[in-house]
Design a protein around this nucleic acid. Sequence first.
RNA 1: GCGCCUCUAGCUCAACGGCAGAGCAACGGACUCUUAAUCCGCAGGUUGGGGGUUCGAAUCCCCCGGGGCGCACCA
Length: 497
Amino acid sequence: MADPGGLAGGVRAQRGPARATVSDIPYRYEVSHSAAAIQQGWGALEPGEESADTVSVAGRVMLLRTQGKVAFGELRDSSGTIQLFAQAGATRDYEAFVRLALGDWVGASGPVVRTRRGELSVAVRDWVLLAEARRSFGDKWRGVHDPETRFRQREVDLWANPATRRRLEVRSQVVRAMRERLWQAGFVEVETPILNPVPGGAEARPFVTHHNALGTDLYLRIAPELYLKRLVIGGFEKVFEIGRLFRNEGISPRHNPEFTTVELYWAYADYQDMMALVEALVAGVATDVLGTTALVYQGRDLDLTPPWRRATMAELVEEHTGRAVSVATPRSELAALAAEAGVAVDPSWGPGKLVAELYEKTTEGQLWGPVFVTDYPEEVSPLARPHRAQPGLVERFEAVVAGRELANAFSELTDPEEQRRRFAEQAARRARGDDEAMALDEEYLRAMEYGLPPTAGVGLGIDRLVMLLTDTANIREVIAFPTLRPERPGTAPGPGA
RNA sequence: GCGCCUCUAGCUCAACGGCAGAGCAACGGACUCUUAAUCCGCAGGUUGGGGGUUCGAAUCCCCCGGGGCGCACCA
């Protein structure tokens, strides 16, 4: 928090004077074992037994129980917890040890022992303060629950709520598993520009920034799609990128302005191939990270085991509304149905947009899945290739899980002339005031004229995948530092202020 | 952007028109095997900010600010 004077006043009064000076703090500390390594390595020690092995550990003192001439501390590191056992006479500077504050970082060394009451411990002979905690980490039993403090001061949340650490660890493992599986499948990882002269590849409002030397505005990317397809044109037959996207839109429990996707392009493949790859990837990542594809999400069973159901958008809308619709249905009928469903119908919308709106309003949120929703209207899919058998539709699917879109994919449009027409339609929408309509990208059209082979592409939301795998309902829980309104002095609550 | 809810000690929470409290943390002390140790003592607050109603406001009303949820938008 902004904390005007908070450190100087409140915390010192709360914590007392500084117990260490900078010169007391060493520059390094030699750690021989993690807490978990000690728990695993000396598990056979009997109560009251002292091993001949001396270890050194480091971490935060989370609890301290002093009992006169003997004291017990709980030391937590990134692997777990180990008890520190200190005794007057055996522990160097015992009087200072028992004055340690909850949250202080210490390094401690000594033999591994099991206390008479059965707790595996490091019997502290020597120890050193590695950092003072001048602010508290909250109630030692109840922790910190205030969501604002948890999101703004994640460093506090991580110590106060171990589940936070676990979620971020799962996130790291998900990204790693995704990478390794794609590498194994022969995909090459690339990086494309985040600063875009034209924001393309999706329908969304961008963030605008400015380059001083070039004297030009640039946009934070809303999707890497067009650059990745240019790499396919350049000869990368299987490429992927894992990275941050930025969309200047509302914040909600399922939307953060910056979020992470994996986007991949696969030459010579179509959207049917891509469905098989997506379900295998998601199920494989779940297995790598959790050891299972049978999840429980928000109290409800969710089985990611392939194959996933495949159903067309029209079929699913009919299932959920009882009304057969298609892009060939008269526009007036579709508009009436959409209005009936609560959609604010825009007069410029064609049948395709109306069908898509009807689907999103009545059906998507009801789909528990996982299910591949296939065959989208061309009107809402300016980068997808026309369906080989269904006029007015494109070969596109979205993977829907727990009522939300997890992935979006299509057989890519490869015809530059057709692409130019699609861009022109988008430009017409933009001229009518739709600021989310896709911008025309001449660089991309030029690239297409060199020849894009048949290609399938997909974008998959990493944050949402992590939400599924960690059973969390709020996207902020799986982002270390979610976007919040900037703090202003004296407005935010929090420990230590 | 709109609606509803919420903000009290460092943390977690009471008090809901009538003296602002508790537990934990902190501070001082006792205690040589604790497990949220225990025990004794002490201190800690412009009740998010501002304004209003009232004999009296943490409590009711208005404005502002932060946050949560829902809607809208999207992934």
